[in-house]
Amino acid sequence: MPITYTSGEQVEVYRFSIPITIGVPLLALFVQAFVPLKFPRFAVFIDLPLLVTIFFAMARRNPISGLLTGAVIGLAQDMLGHNQIGIYGIAKTVVGYGASSLGVKLDVENAGARLLVTLGFYLVHSAVYFTVARGLVNMPQTWSWGHGLLAGLANAVLGVALYFVLDKFKQRT
């Protein structure tokens, strides 16, 4: 299915219950922190909070809601680490804004579109993180296109499956 251009009136806008709104991001953070203990490569390739940010932003199709969701999830992810708080926050704010803005204009309900959108936003997220970490915080960072594309693809594949599950919790407005 191709990505189709739709008007703002044509697209569906969804909302989520409060338990889902709070619980899903928390679960994503929990899994992201716990699974690497058993599968160390998980943290290298997969960013579940990012996938959740993209999903909520695209489903709500509200840029403000999207960027705030991204900011909150990103800041929470920063707090679990030991680096400065705000690096993930900024990256996910940008992604949340971008995904929700894209959701307004494009039909991102089908698997193919979701795959491409997730891959693209993973790269955007990595680029923003790299820029902020290196430019603002002066953290030594290395950029690798190979790793970025591979991890982006892995996230995109996982994202498509995850979005399919999370679609069940959508509520029409």
Binding site: I64, A71, L75, I85, I90, L136
Partner: peptide, 21 residues
């Protein structure tokens, strides 16, 4: 409005980062 809020949220976070650094 959306863009202004985006810039505002980003600015706050950059400010927070700068304070920590």
């Amino acid at each position: 409005r959306n863009l202004i809020i985006l810039v505002g949220v980003l600015f706050l976070q950059v400010l927070g980062l700068a304070t920590q650094v």
